[in-house]
């Protein structure tokens, strides 16, 4: 089970939960599973966030694989200069 973490700003979407365990092998699958738990979360997550998987940050993570026990964080999007 992947450990999925939400920044405080995203917790409004999860009914306040900061951490949720999800069974998925890709980020896409993970978002789909989350959307079943919290309808509507998928749209917000894929638009407004980057994803860190085991510390590595991805901007377009949809097809990235998520290993067993991976630590996944949804982050606010930011821009470089």
């Amino acid at each position: 089970m992947a450990q999925v973490h939400f920044s405080a700003g995203l917790r409004e979407l999860t009914g306040g939960a900061a951490q949720i365990e999800v069974d998925a092998s890709t980020v896409r699958g993970l978002i789909k599973a989350l959307d079943e738990m919290f309808p509507g979360i998928a749209a917000r997550l894929s638009e407004a966030s980057s994803v860190a998987i085991d510390g590595e940050i991805f901007t377009d993570a949809e097809y990235e694989s998520v290993s067993e026990n991976a630590e996944v964080h949804f982050l606010d999007i930011f821009q470089g200069g």
């Binding site: 973490h5 085991d54 510390g55 964080h73 982050l75």
Partner: peptide
Amino acid sequence: GTQASYGPKFP
């Protein structure tokens, strides 16, 4: 390994 303030652990 520190849990960064913005979420993930630092490599």
